[in-house]
């Protein structure tokens, strides 16, 4: 059987869950643990926690959130943001993460992929590639949430990442991320057909059909989703952000974006199954 995975992604800044557009312009949406618990109960296949400001400060601040979450949530948890070394990885795995997601650190030092996958097993090492399409049609890899130019070709880099021993790649279209206009199918299918490891599609899901479309690509088995589920949560639940920091204006208006048709994980999975795409419901 070939089944697909639906992975809610939780971007974290300080104590809050946030969401941006093109990975920037962060709005506060609520308490990460409330969302995590809700997604677990709704049938999320995995959870991804990303410390979105960690890379700037070169440290990951999610330890407390992870160890709390892992006490009562029995699905795989991937943690990313600001992880630079073997000892950083060891530390987040020790507090309850199952996998780590690396980007900036491995672009600076690709050997870290090899060392980490040898030490912790390939399946523990996920590499994120943040892709931006140039005006000449070329895709280049960026770091630090799409802010830092590297000049590295996305497809060359994806091949190298797989060769160095990573277990999975998250491919993010920074251009589509947060916009709700759909996945960049060209980018995603080119990457997945090039390499032998699983690829997770990320960036752009604005409605259920977009997710159906991405799984029609033969070799795609996972989609990472934020806005669709987050906006569904905030319109159907009480979400209380820590009022201490961040932009909470949006949250207080209790609305979604017009470019999104929010849905629950259950709604989405039922839609997939009705399109003959197998998943765990």
């Amino acid at each position: 059987m070939k089944t697909v995975r639906i992975i809610p992604r939780l971007d974290i800044k300080g104590p809050n869950l946030v969401k941006g557009i093109h990975l920037e312009g962060l709005r506060v949406l609520g308490k990460p643990s409330d969302f995590a618990k809700y997604y677990y109960e709704q049938g999320a296949d995995e959870l991804m926690f990303m410390d979105v400001v960690a890379s700037l400060y070169e440290r990951n601040n999610l330890h407390e959130i992870i160890s709390e979450t892992a006490k009562s949530i029995f699905i795989p948890i991937t943690v990313g943001g600001g992880l630079r070394s073997i000892s950083d990885i060891k530390e987040v795995l020790r507090v309850g993460a199952d996998k780590v997601c690396l980007n900036t650190a491995v672009i600076k030092n690709p050997q870290l992929i090899k060392d980490a996958s040898r030490m912790f097993g390939s399946s523990t090492i996920v590499v994120a590639i943040e892709a931006i399409k140039e005006s000449n049609g070329r895709y280049l890899a960026y770091t630090d949430n799409g802010r830092e130019y590297t000049g590295i070709d996305v497809f060359d880099w994806a091949e190298k990442v797989a060769e160095l021993g990573a277990g999975e790649i998250v491919i993010t279209s920074v251009d589509n991320e947060g916009t709700g206009q759909g996945f960049d199918l060209e980018l995603i299918s080119r990457v997945t057909n090039l390499i032998g490891i699983p690829v997770i599609a990320h960036g752009g899901a604005g409605k259920q059909e977009h997710v159906v479309d991405v799984f029609k690509e033969d070799n795609i088995s996972s989609a990472m989703i934020s806005s669709l589920f987050h906006y569904h949560y905030i319109v159907s639940n009480e979400s209380k952000a820590s009022a201490l920091e961040g932009n909470v204006e949006f949250l207080n208006q209790k609305r979604s974006f017009h470019t999104f048709e929010p849905c629950s994980i259950g709604d989405l999975k039922r839609r997939l199954i009705s399109n003959n795409i197998d998943c765990r419901l």
């Binding site: 089944t3 390939s122 490891i197 088995s221």
Partner: peptide, 18 residues
């Protein structure tokens, strides 16, 4: 295996399966 019945197989197998 990397291929099975002429299909490419993604390895590792990472999935909820029955």
């Amino acid at each position: 295996p990397e291929t099975f019945e002429e299909r490419k197989i993604k390895v590792p197998h990472i999935a909820w399966n029955t």
